[in-house]
């Protein structure tokens, strides 16, 4: 029996580079959305802690644990990027974990020009502290494509885009990045 392989939405053309900018498909082990019910946020955090996941309590922030990164998108909603393929489970009485590991592509934008490129994509004031390193936000691009933006560092951004938009988004990224010498 030949095991069915996973095929990336982006095909082979998933890395672009310029003098001060790198764009690449970064992949991930597993991705999930966690929802808590009103008042059960602490219970969810406690339930996921054994899996090495530290859930932040402030919307728009990111926390790192041995099990992966947890990004609080909204009250009671987190995006988990896990260090291993297995998903944690939650008792339905306190919340849910929904697998979206096939539903997203993930891009890395890095380099001195990365903030300028990110600023073209998202109508967000990236100079504000609430959009600094260690923050996350959900937004949309001028290309009418929604994405999640995780700022890992001053010049380092991770984008999560719906898989079905992935290839088109990469093409538009390349076009937007052309002025930074990206080929």
């Amino acid at each position: 029996m030949t095991m069915i392989e996973r095929r990336s939405a982006l095909g082979d053309a998933a890395a672009l580079a310029g003098p001060r900018l790198q764009i690449r498909d970064r992949g991930f082990a597993a991705l999930a959305l966690v929802a808590a019910w009103p008042g059960t946020g602490p219970d969810v955090a406690a339930a996921l802690a054994p899996a090495g996941l530290d859930l932040p309590a402030a919307a728009g922030t990111v926390a790192e644990g041995p099990g992966g990164h947890a990004m609080m998108l909204a009250p009671g909603r987190w995006l988990l990027e896990l260090a291993a393929p297995a998903l944690p489970r939650l008792d339905a009485a306190i919340g849910t974990v929904t697998d979206i590991g096939h539903a997203r592509c993930s891009f890395m934008l890095a380099g001195e020009d990365a903030p300028a490129l990110a600023g073209k994509l998202a109508a967000v004031d990236l100079s504000l502290p609430r959009h600094g390193p260690g923050t996350v936000l959900q937004t949309g691009s001028a290309h009418s494509t929604p994405f999640t933006l995780w700022r890992q560092g001053p010049d380092r951004f991770v984008l999560y885009v719906e898989r079905s938009y992935g290839r088109d988004f990469l093409d538009s990224l390349a076009a937007e990045a052309a002025e930074f010498g990206v080929a």
């Binding site: 959305l33 919340g95 849910t96 929904t98 979206i100 539903a103 719906e162 898989r163 079905s164 938009y165």
Partner: peptide
């Protein structure tokens, strides 16, 4: 919880 999974499947 409501989650769009159109692209997941």
């Amino acid at each position: 919880a409501l989650t769009s999974v159109t692209s997941q499947w």
